[in-house]
């Protein structure tokens, strides 16, 4: 009914938003953990993250699984050093 008016930038932005995902801080992959998961290991790089849910279906990284990620990093630094 309304005339074809150009959509405002504000409205366009809202349409483009995604949810349910977080990005791995190590490899930047977008990951979709199962709802409510407390720990999720990145299938791409093997780094493990402790998650919290700030809204229904909205995960975020609370912190690393310290020992797992530190071991991963030691390994990858050693490999790099060996090159």
């Amino acid at each position: 009914m309304s005339k074809t008016k150009e959509e405002s930038t504000a409205k366009k932005t809202v349409r483009g938003r995604t949810s349910g995902q977080f990005r791995c801080l190590n490899c930047f992959e977008r990951l979709t953990p199962p709802p409510g998961a407390k720990i999720f290991t990145c299938p791409n790089c093997g780094y493990a993250w402790r998650l919290s849910w700030f809204g229904p279906g909205e995960p975020r990284i609370r912190g690393p699984v310290w020992d797992v990620n530190e071991a991963q990093t030691q390994k990858s630094m050693a490999e790099k050093g060996g090159n």
Partner: peptide, 11 residues
């Protein structure tokens, strides 16, 4: 809406 629909804002 533009602001509050962003993940950073919800967090």
């Amino acid at each position: 809406t533009q602001v509050t629909s962003a993940k950073v804002s919800k967090t």
